[in-house]
């Protein structure tokens, strides 16, 4: 029976004559499910969320723990139940990912609703700088309008106009979309990104002021690494070291070449510290995921 269930797979066969009934049935079941959920008492809300979270998480836990078939090729028949279930889970990944994407698409609508509510309130109450909100909303509508029109022209080739990546095939709509996206948005992104250079400068100035042993260590190690990247200076320093060591490259003094010191700082001080942090972050994420999956967390998100 399990084999029969697994053989149903995740997708509806496009040539199945009953596919429309299946789609309609799934949509109806979804609607009924949503209605029942909305009528569920508040006290049972947490249990429902925990159950949904557990089932969703179980898929990925099984995907991680269940053995995958070795050297499985297209059209192969699984040898046994273990291989069959492993294949079933692997085949299910695109389906489950699509479900997550569909959910995210709905949530994006809620995000845009939030944006509209915040800025329409600001405009209607004539709050401070309400003019910027007007510009934001006009930009939002304009980019959406031309973005969709451009997309339709590219994908559906309306009115026999063949639009491709070649600008000579573009209509005025594609031109406007290009100006809005590549001409304005990308450049504004680049401008914001460039601002970071100045922020790094001001932040680094404060961080490198020698106030304590830690900041002194920070400054010295940063100075060594930065200087090691300057070719001319590295050449002069290393030549002096080589001369002092009598031209012997395996002499003890060769350890004091600028690039060797910088390499030592990076691989023996920086990398171990980062690895240690990564272990801690990974363990934290694992424990957090486990608590959420099993519904063990009380308060905050899971309340």
């Amino acid at each position: 029976m399990i084999t029969n269930l697994l053989s149903l797979g995740w997708d509806v066969n496009p040539t199945d004559p009953n596919k429309w009934f299946i789609i309609l049935g799934v949509m109806l079941a979804g609607g009924v499910g949503a209605f029942l959920l909305s009528k569920a008492p508040t006290s049972s809300r947490r249990s429902i969320i925990v159950a949904f979270t557990f089932v969703s998480g179980l898929f990925w836990v099984l995907k991680y723990l269940w053995p995958e078939p070795i050297a499985f090729r297209e059209g192969d028949v699984p040898r046994n139940g273990i291989e069959g279930f492993g294949k079933y889970l692997t085949d299910g990944v695109p389906f489950v990912s699509t479900l997550a994407q569909t959910l995210t698409a709905f949530l994006l609508g809620l995000g845009i609703f939030s944006l509209l509510r915040v800025h329409l309130t600001k405009i209607s109450r004539k709050q401070k700088d309400w003019q910027f909100s007007v510009i934001l909303l006009i930009s939002l509508v304009t980019v959406c309008f031309f973005g969709y029109w451009d997309w339709i022209l590219f994908n559906f080739r309306m009115k026999d106009v063949l639009v491709s990546d070649d600008p000579s095939t573009w209509t005025w709509v594609n031109q406007v979309q290009d100006i809005l996206f590549d001409g304005l948005l990308q450049n504004m992104d680049a401008a914001m990104f460039s601002l970071i250079a100045f922020f790094i400068f001001s932040a680094a100035y404060r961080a490198f002021r020698i106030r304590s042993v830690e900041s002194s260590l920070l400054m010295v190690s940063a100075l060594i690494v930065m200087l090691s990247l300057m070719g001319a200076l590295t050449f002069v320093w290393n030549s002096a070291v080589l001369q002092a060591s009598g031209g012997n490259p395996v002499h003890f003094l060769s350890n004091f070449r600028l690039d060797t010191i910088a390499g030592w700082v990076q691989s023996n001080v920086q990398v171990p510290a980062l690895r240690a942090l990564e272990f801690g972050v990974g363990l934290g994420a694992l424990a957090m995921g486990l608590r959420l999956w099993l519904g063990l967390e009380r308060g905050g998100v899971s309340q």
Binding site: L277, G280, V281, L283, A287, R291, L296
Partner: peptide, 26 residues
């Protein structure tokens, strides 16, 4: 908050047994 201190925050603030136990497990 450096590294896993970020994940320890809720246990530190609330001192709930589940969160603190999880921290010890980590």
């Amino acid at each position: 908050l450096i590294g896993d201190e970020f994940y320890a925050a809720s246990a530190y603030i609330t001192r709930q047994p589940v969160l603190v136990g999880s921290l010890v497990g980590q």
